[in-house]
């Protein structure tokens, strides 16, 4: 029974982490790159309009970062809940 509880906790922690990361995923691509692109395009940095840069470069870098964080956090969670393979 304790192992089932342990697995439930692990699953909850996983869902929470996923929820946070997927919210960021949605914000950088759909919100910054599409819905608010015209607003963000008012901001200029280096030779880029911010909205355009988010759509063609920035969101891709954030996607990579999100997966990297997920890999690291899940490895820690696997250890913490003792569910490693």
């Amino acid at each position: 029974m304790s192992s089932t509880n342990n697995h439930d906790e692990y699953w909850k922690a996983n869902l929470k982490l996923m929820g946070i990361l997927l919210s960021i995923w949605f914000v950088v691509s759909f919100v910054c790159g599409i819905l608010l692109v015209d607003v963000l395009n008012q901001i200029q940095f280096a030779g880029f309009k911010l909205g355009f840069w988010m759509a063609q470069q920035g969101s891709l870098y954030v996607f990579l970062l999100l997966i990297w964080i997920y890999v690291k956090r899940m490895n820690t969670l696997d250890k913490h809940f003792d569910v490693e393979e």
């Binding site: 996923m18 997927l22 759509a55 969101s59 891709l60 997920y70």
Partner: peptide, 29 residues
């Protein structure tokens, strides 16, 4: 495609990379 569509081609850039976040978090493991 990007050269001639400019911003409109962003759908491919975000679409074809953002799917990997879904794969990594929701399906692959």
């Amino acid at each position: 495609i990007i050269a001639f569509a400019g911003y409109d081609a962003s759908v491919y850039l975000m679409g074809w990379t953002g799917g990997y976040v879904l794969l990594a978090l929701l399906l692959a493991p």
